[in-house]
Amino acid sequence: MKLTVTIALVVVLLVFCAGESCAQTSSSATQTVTFGVRIVGAEPLSASQSVALSDSYIESPFKVTVGTDLKGGEIVALGLPAVRKKHTTSRNLLFDGRNVALAIKTYPPQTSARSVLTITE
């Protein structure tokens, strides 16, 4: 008799616990977020990279626009005796010359900086 009563109590307890577990007080859903950084477009500017202009005849003066994401450094435009001077980034540089080779150097050297040269006559 005692065994029967005990089994009955256990069954009642299990049913009660099962009911309680169905009482949802919180619910979750998950999402997977995929990310990355892969800059495409202009080639990374190496520590010293030349942009050859000698293939085309450019009337002087011509303008070189340098845009860069270089941080904490500066771009030095070399190639013409008359303009051997430093220029800050993101400025329009005015060059007077033709059939020249323009060297762009970054100081300090950075390989991850991205720069774009736009040359207009």
Binding site: Q24, S28, T32, F35, G36, R38, V40, G41, G67
Partner: peptide, 25 residues
């Protein structure tokens, strides 16, 4: 009436790839 809470999502978001950077940003 027991407490009910349900939340569901439609799926995963699209991939978040940075492929360009404006100058000076």
């Amino acid at each position: 009436v027991r407490p009910i809470t349900k939340i569901a999502v439609s799926g995963n978001p699209g991939a978040l790839f940075i492929t360009d950077a404006p100058y000076g940003a």
